[in-house]
Amino acid sequence: MPKQFYDPPCVYSPVNIYSHGVRAGRTLTLAGQAPLAEDGSVIGPGDPAAQCRRVFADLKKTLDLAGATFADVVYVRAYLTHKRVMPELRRISIDIFGANRPAFTPVIVPSVRAEGALVEIELTVVFDV
């Protein structure tokens, strides 16, 4: 079965070596999404709420392209630069996921790729038959 590759036009990539989403069979894997403007600059420096909102807005663009929704997400991996980002992430997750309750792994790291980004999030989606 051929893989499908998704790259929403308004979502920044620092380098043209990866896709924002890849579907193989029923599974859609999204690349880590940081809170970046279209020019690659970091949105909302020092503002975890603004950064989380931006991350989920851009993840939605890839999901939309692939015909998926946040209700289809089975697993979230969030890279955070400090544990104090967690409460904001939980708050926005309640709104974003609604009745869905994906599996979740937080990873607290010294930095993500984009300097000043406090958060970067990967999603895994499984489509219902």
């Binding site: 029923r26 089975v74 939980r90 996921f97 309750r101 599996a103 979740f104 499984v126």
Partner: peptide
């Protein structure tokens, strides 16, 4: 929490 301890799909 908005998350589960685990998810099974298929």
């Amino acid at each position: 929490s908005p998350y589960s301890q685990g998810v099974r799909a298929g």
